[in-house]
Amino acid sequence: MPTLANYLIASGLLFAIGLGGVMLRRSIIIIFMSLELMLSAANLSLVAFSRYGLVSGHQNFDVQVLVFFIITVAAAEVAVGLAIIVSLYRARQTTHVEDLDTLKF
């Protein structure tokens, strides 16, 4: 049987991969995909805690409702973010973060 620590390590590894992608990649689409990876990693640890911390004999369904809300908000976030990327591309003809330095100090 896998333990709670196994699931938390898997989730932490996925989060670290997403963090590395955000910091190392230069294409704005890939950075956005890595953000999705980090959100999903948080979902995995939430669901693991809900399964291992039983409330009066069954899983903690409040947590699963929270994960449901997170997935909904993430879907809205992806739609808005991709629309921003499209209008950015229309204005600058690039999706490379090093070419977008107007706000750089």
């Binding site: 049987m1 896998p2 333990t3 709670l4 620590a5 938390l8 399964r51 291992y52 039983l54 004999g57 069954h58 899983q59």
Partner: peptide, 8 residues
Amino acid sequence: LSKALPAL
């Protein structure tokens, strides 16, 4: 954190 999966 290393406890086994509790049965449903």
